Amino acid sequence: MDVDPRRYEHVTINEDDIHDVVLSYLVHNCFKETVESLTTCTGMKQPAGCLEDMEKRKRIFHFALEGNALKAIDLTEELAPDLLEKNSDLHFDLLSLHFVKLVCSRRCTEALEFAQSKLAPFGKEYVGKLEDFMALLAYEEPEKSPMFHLLSLDYRQLVADSLNRAILAHANQPSHSALERLIQQMMVVRQLLSQEHGKDTFLPFSLRDFLKS
């Protein structure tokens, strides 16, 4: 059984808190125009340097999402000079996007040279990941290879999201929006309640069903 909504209808939530949660999500995801509209309509104060930072992060995010990783790396080094130097996993993943772009463009010789000069120096702990990418070169149609997911938008999205969070953390800002953290906390609470009271007491949490309730 689920929790009866009538049990929490009497709970009052401060409207300013809701605005803060929404603003956090918009800033995190670089919705600049919507941030401007929200702050204008509600009279909220924008975080210092908020719009300028969002514009830079938005450009970096979209370059990574489009597979233009070298441009994303250049802009990241301008915005957060030592970030990639301290985060080898993220740096490798960004460079891998460029490798994939070369493979998709059928520039296999250039891709091989890039892997040897830019990816191989990351060391032994990256051999497994490097082998996965190098396997793409063995197929005339890489999109039909067992490693086809490395060519997907989902993979670029994953890397772009990781980069965005890392840039935020580098600037001493939350790496996840308040809305994400609230949903994560809700799921953990439901899991703990199920463990404490029995699996049949609380159904598995579904955000889609919750929004419809």
Rank of each mutant, 00 (worst) to 15 (best):
D132I: 05
R106T: 05
L94E: 07
A171L: 11
E113F: 10
E125L: 09
E196P: 10
V159I: 13
D132V: 01
M187Y: 00
L153G: 06
L136M: 03
P174V: 01
F122K: 09
A178F: 05
K101S: 15
Q195R: 13
S194L: 14
F148P: 01
M186T: 09
S96H: 05
A120H: 04
L182I: 14
E131A: 13
K144E: 04
P121I: 01
A135H: 07
N172M: 02
S152C: 03
A169K: 11
S145I: 00
E125S: 14
N172G: 02
F99W: 06
V100C: 15
C108N: 14
P142F: 02
A178T: 06
G123R: 06
L192P: 04
A138L: 09
P174E: 01
R190S: 05
Q195A: 15
R107C: 07
L153Y: 15
M187V: 05
A135N: 11
V188R: 09
E140V: 00
A120T: 15
E141N: 07
L158P: 01
S177A: 01
L192V: 04
K129H: 08
A169T: 12
I167F: 01
C108D: 10
L168N: 07
E140P: 00
K144F: 11
L112H: 11
Y126E: 11
H98K: 06
L158I: 05
H176R: 07
V188F: 00
L94P: 10
L102R: 03
S177D: 05
Y155D: 09
E110I: 02
F114Y: 15
S145R: 01
M147P: 00
S177G: 02
E196G: 02
G128Y: 15
P146I: 00
H197L: 15
K118Q: 11
P142L: 00
S152N: 01
P174F: 00
F99R: 04
K129Q: 10
A178G: 02
H149R: 12
S194H: 12
A178E: 14
Q184H: 06
S162G: 15
S162N: 15
L130Y: 08
G128H: 15
